[in-house]
Amino acid sequence: MRPMLLALLAKEPAHGYELKQALEQIFGSAYPSPNIGQIYVTLGRLEKDGLVRVVDVEQSNRPNKKVYYLTAAGREALEGWVDEPTEGPRVRDEFFMKLVLAPMTGIADRMAMINRQRRHYLGLMRDLNELAGQTDRDNRAALLLVEGAMLHLQADLDWLERCQEELS
């Protein structure tokens, strides 16, 4: 979450709750909303590392508001994050480990494991279909996020099929 908060603060200074709202608005329900506690913990760490600073803004009739803004070091860290290529998905699939190892012990049947896993993936896909249906048509970031998850899930299913062909 660190770089995401830095990116939002590069746009404009904000307090914690505004950052939470911005994340929810940009990514929709497709992205699990961080709780406000996590956001403040992360902001505290960023402050300790000198990437953000905080100012107290006085409010009438209310406690002071803490507004965070990006430091020069924060901007540099953000630029580094943006410029750097991002790791692709790594295959260290827990199900695959089960599939290879469990039958060696005689406690599981591969075909049954694969069938169970396929149904589970299809159930997840059904959820994603529903999520896509509930997402605002104009929120392209959220829709693309859901579509990305669907494509990954499709790849998992194709791989499962390959496993079934080769191992059963």
């Binding site: 329900s29 497709a30 699990p32 589970h120 959820d127 996020l145 859901v146 998850a149």
Partner: peptide
């Protein structure tokens, strides 16, 4: 089968 030990679609993402 729709057992979701870790919750919903958001977790896939």
């Amino acid at each position: 089968a729709r057992r979701r030990p870790r919750g919903g679609a958001g977790d896939v993402i």
